[in-house]
Amino acid sequence: MTTLPASTAKKLGLVIDLDICVGCHACVISCKEWNTSNYGAPLSDMDAYGENPVGTFLNRVHTFEVKSAGCNAQTVHFPKSCLHCEDAPCVTVCPTGASYKRVEDGIVLVNESDCIGCGLCAWACPYGAREMDAAEGVMKKCTLCVDRIYNENIPEIDREPSCVRTCPAKARHFGDFADPDSNVSVMTRERGGMELMPELATKPVNRYLPPRPKADISGDIDILAPLLAPVPENKGGFMGWLDKALEAI
């Protein structure tokens, strides 16, 4: 089980649009809510109401600033979860076979009843996608909401990962990268979807769409500036007289 499949029938994964993400963390919260109450051990919090709360999350949003000479600094919100790599190093290091990549759809999962909590898979993952649950002592990771996407007990519109379903800005997309005509494949092709840390040759399935080039606004104060022109102080006519009279009282 710990050896990787040579190929998978589907390559399910996410496209995350860094141009659109507003950094609201709604995906973080909905992921935690769905995954703490469904598949596998709950995502525990330690000292949840105390001074130093620490908890298990499968999805986290970092915020970066990008600066280059002559341009305005750009803020990029950056959600990060398991990339369901084709050459997943977390799978091959597992001594028990608890970590595996599914042949049918490429999802990387942990069989928690086999996990000894050695943490080696988290060491092998460059992306910080795996977190050991402090209460259960087993490794937790994104399941691509495997208990939603095939779930016939929920409405069809909800059969996508919780983070995708909840994103208010529609910055997250779910689909099959093995199908060249799927929504995610088309977006990746058209927008130059990026792999994270390609130098480590993990072949991540998830792709990130880079922020679009920003318009050059140097010189213009604001395109709304004309609308903000000051209102003349000396109004004539009856309204002007009323304004002055009221002010004099």
Binding site: H62, S68, V76, F78, M194, Y208, P211
Partner: peptide, 12 residues
């Protein structure tokens, strides 16, 4: 982050 070609990146 894949953002290296856009400029200098730091955690905000």
């Amino acid at each position: 982050t894949g953002l290296g070609n856009l400029g200098q990146v730091r955690l905000l």
